[in-house]
Amino acid sequence: MDAVDRARHRDDLGDSGLVTIALTGLLAKLALGDLRGAAAYSRELTNLMRIRGLIGAVSSFGLGEFAAARSLPDQAVSFYERAGEELRSVKATTWLPWRSGLARVIAGRGEIAPATALVEAELAQARTLDAPYAIAYALRTQAAIAPTSDRVTLLSEALEVLEGTAAARLDAQIRTDLAAWLLLLHPQESARAVDLLRSAEKYARQEELAPLLGRIRWLLERLGEAPDGELPGRLAELSAAERRVAQLVVVGKRNREIAVELGVSVKSVEWHVSHILRKLAITSRTELADALAQPRQPR
């Protein structure tokens, strides 16, 4: 929003710049849970929607997102469809996730087959463009409408695709989705679910994303975890799940013993141990006791 506010005072934006700023502002306000603030940008998009082609498509997509956020599915469908029509009219190859928006709305009406076709088309385009963000975005939508048994796999793939990118919000959203499905489908992976949520929680809290943060904390409560739970010293750098594993490593328990005690898989324990060592900048389990007992030294 700071970047949007700075850009809005420029005189050289043109229609393309204006629609980009208006869409960014609208999506940021929706992420913050500020529908009233988003409404101001929706009015700007409405004015720009009369311009045919790519600008009209971007405007229509933003208005579709705004309608969906206000639970107005008929309006959302109309705007998303118009976005697609405008893109096709100029044969634009620009990635715009109107298909994902439309798929989510019609899937909510029980129209799973056409929703699936839309997402498959979007994912194919994203892979053709070799765009990690677009691929992960489409995979997240696909997971929302796919058979339940496929959702953990699709979300895990989306996280892998995003690794190394700067897509912090999408990463946090996918981590939250994945944690929710692990909680429901694989309760033995609760430690991993907590770790995913702690990572997402930190980002959502920093950016004040009330809707996402509320969902994260609700899930943590279901897992028996308090929000923002931290301990002093270097232990505070670890998530709650990692702390449990670290404390058992320190007393000499092996991965298999830890897995039995926590009721998780050995693979999950191994995954946590590797994260613990990397976070604390150490290379072996034998260094862990000292690392947890001493304050972190500046590098």
Rank of each mutant, 00 (worst) to 15 (best):
L18Q: 10
T94W: 13
P227S: 01
A293Q: 13
E120K: 12
G108D: 06
L129C: 05
E85V: 10
P298A: 03
L26R: 03
Y80V: 01
L220T: 04
G56D: 04
A289S: 12
F66H: 06
E225C: 13
A67G: 00
Q297T: 13
W271T: 13
Q173S: 09
A259K: 04
G101F: 01
A7V: 11
T20R: 11
T94C: 11
V273W: 03
A168V: 14
L212K: 03
R6Y: 14
A144S: 15
G252W: 12
A259E: 00
L129E: 02
A124Q: 10
P187V: 01
T93G: 12
R52W: 11
I55N: 06
D195Q: 12
P232R: 14
V77L: 07
L292G: 01
H9Q: 15
L18C: 12
I106C: 06
T286Q: 14
D290R: 15
L27M: 10
L178T: 01
L63I: 08
K253F: 11
T128W: 13
P97N: 05
A126E: 01
D11S: 13
D195Y: 08
Q206L: 14
L231T: 13
T176I: 04
P97F: 05
T148A: 15
T94A: 11
A69W: 08
A39H: 13
M1D: 07
L18R: 09
R169I: 10
R244G: 04
S60H: 02
G214F: 07
A131I: 10
A172N: 06
L123P: 01
A69C: 10
A136H: 03
A115V: 05
L30D: 02
L54E: 03
T24L: 10
Q206N: 11
Q297H: 13
W95Q: 06
L26P: 00
S190T: 14
V19I: 09
L32H: 12
L162H: 05
